[in-house]
Every structure is written in structure tokens, then in C-alpha cells.
Nucleic acid binder design. Structure first.
Lengths: 203, 203
DNA sequence: AATTTACGTCAGCCATATTGACTTATTTTC
DNA sequence: GAAAATAAGTCAATATGGCTGACGTAAATT
């Protein structure tokens, strides 16, 4: 709140990184003396902050947090997923997952049944109640994304997807690409997202 | 670790949201029956996860967390910023900020002096040590961003910036635009980022 | 039969956020 | 000049969501 005064907050530190045009482009002949793209760094911070805030508000009404959202989302998107897969996608520990998953199961948002071939597995899927909440949360995020892209051409949307994909660690891209195309038959023939994302690097 | 098996995890819930081409495009004549753009939702999640992971590793060596990073970043970028401004940018409480800011001041990453006109204010700026760490962290994020954009034209980069800007709550865009252009004289004449981001909506 | 895997659990720790109430300077307003 | 508003600090309590390490069990694989 309160009108914030950001005027007169100018950097007193020019010359930190040699000459730059202020946009991160090189001005010298060869070496990369550019300053960091602060605009993008900060845009990503603010964009993600707001991207998560809508769902957070809804989740709070259920006494859930962002952790529940992530679990609910990936279970809803990948019915039959097992605990090990969730751990690797979310990159958290079994204990951390266990707590939120238990709540989601206890409160009937997620149900589980043993794997048919391997009875050690817990195959997870959302209940109707869970699916409904997942859709509500996804719709909020969808609304924001659609609004942000409403004036974009298909090509421009593809550029955005490509950008986000390339922000992911190269090591993880194959796994992510698999997740993304998991219900899109048209992408089956593109195992590592190479075509999808016009990937021509890091190989 | 362990090879994860995402095959055979196909949605068993077709027909939830009427017909869709699987890409979030409308297939009907007018109403928006499209399903959420799950690919973008998940790409944003993974992109941000990895975007923050590099700095996290460095911060851990100093016994700092992501909260310290945010404070350090915005102080470094806005020398002379005061506590109230930080609170509004970071959207956290005074108590939360107080703790991490105290550590950063105690360990000589940030210094403070009273405002010249208003002696209640603490004008914050990074020390050499603090600036050095801030630059190190920014370079990590810059490296990832530059790599993600290395094959992009200037137009495509502009599209990406525009996308991120439009993901921000309309209410916050003016404030963010002010922050972004804070040391870029070329943008001074564009108070709410309208030109910069080719903004033609929400007015 | 031995090993590995999938999962669960106990116990404790830490970082980061929250709310509400209260204090102290200092500046602004009437 | 008195009253009100502002900038900042502080105390106390609480919640969330991560973490580590150790251990246990059932089922599958070698």
C-alpha cells in the first residue's frame, strides 16, 4: 500500500561491467561484457509471484498450501502416477511429500489403489472432488496465461513456449517433454521435445 | 534418479471440457470451451524451479536462503531504497523482512544510513561484499536467460518480455515498470510501460 | 536366498512466512 | 504547539514446507 517512491533510486555504480548499452547487448567486438538482463530477472520474479497468488487464495480456503497444489496438479494430470514419480518431478523428499499427500488422501481429494502388476505401488488419481479443485486452480492460471497471450500470434506463443522450455536444465528437458506430451497423441513421435521446441543446442 | 516411467500415464478423463484440439485453441464457434494450457502451466513451474536453483546453491554456502537473495537483489538494484519500499515489492511482512535484513546488515552485505531529509528512514545499499554476491547470483541467472535466448531475434526477445509483463497483475504493472526502468534513462518517458511492452489492454 | 525396490514412518531440525500488539522517533497536519 | 500519521523496530506465538537420518515392511527381481 502507500504510494511507493522509486524515483531517485538510481544506480550509483556505473562501470561495474564495462560498457553496455543498458539492454544487455554486447558493445565490444567479441567478449561478453554485457550486464545481466535485470529486466528479465525481475519480470520472471514478479510474473511467477502473481501466477501463484490466485491459486494460493483458493487453497487457503481449504487449509491447503502451494505444496498441495503441486501434488494435486500432477496427480490430476497423470492419473495412475506413483509416489516415486511424484518425488522425482517435484524434487522433494518422501517425508515432505508424505505429509501433504496424506492430507489429500484423508480428505478425499486423491485416491490410491495398488498397482496391478506390482502391488507395492500406490497408483494415485484424483477423486471427483480432487479433480474439481484441480480444474478450478488450473482455470485461474489458464485465465492469466490466456489474457497474457491474447494478442499473440501462434508463432509468438511458440516463441514463449520455447523460451520457457530452454530455461529448464538440459538434463531435465527430456523428462519434462515426456510429461508435457503425456496426453497429446500428436507429440508422441517427438521423444525429447526436439521438434516441438525447435531445440538445436546442448548435445 | 531412477528411470522414471511416464509412459502409460494417459488421462482417462476425456470430455471434461468439451471438444478441444489439445492445444488450448477453441474449436467451437464462439464460447471458450478450451482446456487449460497445461503445457504453459507446467513449463512455468519447471522453468522457475530451475531458475532459482543455481542461486540457491551459492546462497547455501553463505547460510543464506532465497529470502536473502530477494532482499539483496532489490537493495543492490535500488541503492537508497528504504524498508517500506522493500516490503511493498516483496510483499512480505515487516517481521519476515526484519530477520533476513538484520542478518545481511550484521554480516556486512548491506549497509544503512538515515535519510537526509527524513531521519526516520533507513536508506539501504549493498556493501562491496554485498554487491559482489549480488552480481555473482545475477550472473548465474543471466547465464541461464542468455542461453535460453541465444537463438532469439530482438523481436522474439521483446515478445518474451511482453509475455512476462502481462503475467503480472494489472494493478502492479506500473510499479514494476518503474522498478525495471529505474536505471535506464531511455525509458524515462514511458511512465507505465505502455510503449515498452506494447500494452493495449486493461484500461 | 539375497538384494533391490516402493513405500511408510518416527523423530527432530530449520527457514520462511504469518498475525497481533506495542514502542520509539520523527515528520506532517491542523 | 498539539495531534496524527509515518518509518521502523520488537516481542511472542504459530504455521508451512522443506530437510536429514534411521529404520521397517512387503513385494519383486536377480
Amino acid at each position: 500500500m502507500a504510494d511507493v517512491n522509486f524515483n531517485r533510486l538510481h544506480s550509483e555504480r556505473a562501470g561495474d561491467l564495462l560498457a553496455s548499452d543498458g539492454n544487455g547487448k554486447k558493445t565490444g567486438p567479441d567478449a561478453d561484457h554485457s550486464s545481466p538482463p535485470y529486466d528479465l530477472i525481475e519480470l520472471l520474479f514478479f510474473a511467477y509471484r502473481d501466477f501463484t497468488s490466485d491459486p494460493d487464495d483458493v487453497l487457503a480456503q481449504f487449509d491447503f498450501g502451494r505444496a498441495h497444489h503441486r501434488v494435486l496438479h500432477f496427480v490430476d494430470r497423470n492419473p495412475g502416477i506413483m509416489v516415486t514419480d511424484l518425488l522425482s518431478v517435484l524434487r522433494i523428499t518422501k517425508q515432505s511429500l508424505g505429509r501433504v499427500l496424506k492430507q489429500l488422501v484423508d480428505e478425499d481429494f486423491i485416491e490410491q489403489k495398488p498397482g496391478e502388476n506390482d502391488r507395492r505401488q500406490r497408483r494415485l488419481k484424483t477423486t471427483e472432488k480432487g479433480h474439481s479443485l484441480a480444474m478450478r486452480l488450473a482455470s485461474l492460471q489458464a485465465g492469466r496465461l490466456n489474457q497474457a497471450m491474447k494478442n499473440m500470434s501462434e508463432d509468438e506463443k511458440a516463441v514463449t513456449r520455447k523460451f520457457l522450455f530452454h530455461m529448464i536444465n538440459p538434463d531435465s528437458r527430456v523428462e519434462v517433454a515426456k510429461l508435457l506430451r503425456s496426453d497429446d497423441p500428436a507429440l508422441k513421435a517427438d521423444p525429447d521435445g526436439t521438434q516441438l521446441f525447435n531445440d538445436q543446442e546442448t548435445r
